[in-house]
């Protein structure tokens, strides 16, 4: 019996080994390497990398583009996440109620989710085109002044935020839809007997029961807000005047246009720290405050 148990132990590790090897090579090692690189200068042809302590981080604090990227990313997340989640909830409620044509509506809501972000960006780029784009045509019908939505720093960030909302709301809708369908119909009957209005039923019964779904959607949305920059590459390249610069796009630019890998490492660490904070909030704080069945 004991020998059998040892064999199971060894088998356990053997089964795990391939996955751990790949995770080490392409996740843990690069993450540790990033941490170390952040304390070194970028290697140049005649000047190999040398230890410079926290100089990269000092540069970061003095870098206005970094701060702009950070505040843009915060704005992008704080606007796109509540709006996408709210729209997703409304979509789910409408599709869940037996309105006629709901299958078509669900399809329309969900379709952007299966498109590549790069295709979505191309579609919206055309939609936003000055003079010819559909948006401009609609605006001019109503007598609005022409506006270069992606070309002016006042509206570019809002324009790419709308694209993110459009892409994600349908995805979040299906989680709400699944959760709504799991709510027992007995609860609705009980609430009706008590004379609750539809709003009260939503506010006091449905919404609290949807909290775990909301948490799941929020965490996903936050992570996506920091790791998806495909549309920035296609639509604005961070411009005009860095008005659509997001953190990961800045990492990409510093790392692969300026080839300043040391500084890119410091920027990546900021990104990783933000993602770590999100998980800590998820596991530590929100988990306890969310109502679970």
């Amino acid at each position: 019996m004991k020998r059998w148990r040892i064999a199971r132990q060894i088998n356990g590790w053997l089964f795990l080994l391939p996955a751990i090897a790949f995770l080490t090579l392409f996740t843990y090692w690069p993450a540790l390497k990033t941490l170390v690189e952040g304390f070194y200068s970028t290697a140049r042809p005649r000047r190999p990398a040398h230890f410079i302590g926290i100089d990269q981080y000092r540069q970061l604090i003095d870098d206005p583009v970094f701060w702009q990227a950070l505040s843009n990313n915060a704005w992008y997340a704080l606007v796109s996440i509540p709006v996408a989640t709210g729209i997703a909830l409304v979509m789910a409620i409408w599709v869940n109620d037996r309105v006629p044509g709901r299958a078509l509506a669900r399809m329309a809501y969900f379709t952007p989710t299966v498109l590549p972000m790069i295709a979505v960006a191309n579609i919206w780029l055309f939609f936003y085109t000055p003079q010819y784009g559909l948006l401009e045509q609609v605006v001019s019908i109503f007598g609005g002044p022409p506006h270069n939505w992606l070309g002016s720093s006042s509206s570019a960030l809002a324009a790419v935020t709308i694209v993110a909302i459009w892409k994600e709301a349908g995805f979040f809708m299906i989680f709400y839809l699944a959760a709504l369908q799991q709510i027992s119909p007995v609860l609705a009957e009980a609430a009706a007997l008590e004379g609750a209005s539809r709003w009260q039923f939503f506010r006091r019964v449905q919404f609290p029961l949807l909290m775990p779904t909301t948490l799941f959607v929020l965490i996903n949305a936050i992570i996506n807000a920091f790791r998806t920059v495909d549309h920035i590459i296609v639509m604005t390249r961070g411009g005009p005047d860095n008005s659509t610069m997001l953190l990961l796009y800045y990492v990409y630019q510093v790392g692969f246009s300026f080839w300043d890998t040391g500084y890119a490492a410091a920027l990546t660490m900021v990104l990783l720290a933000l993602l770590a904070a999100v998980s800590l909030v998820q596991y530590g704080w929100l988990d306890r405050r969310v109502h679970y069945r």
Binding site: L23, T27, A31, L248, L275
Partner: peptide, 24 residues
Amino acid sequence: IAFALVLLQLMIMPDVLIVENYRT
């Protein structure tokens, strides 16, 4: 510990580690 390490990848995604992975 191994399981916790695996779950860590849900947070530290390859999408973010582009510079180091390129070097690898």
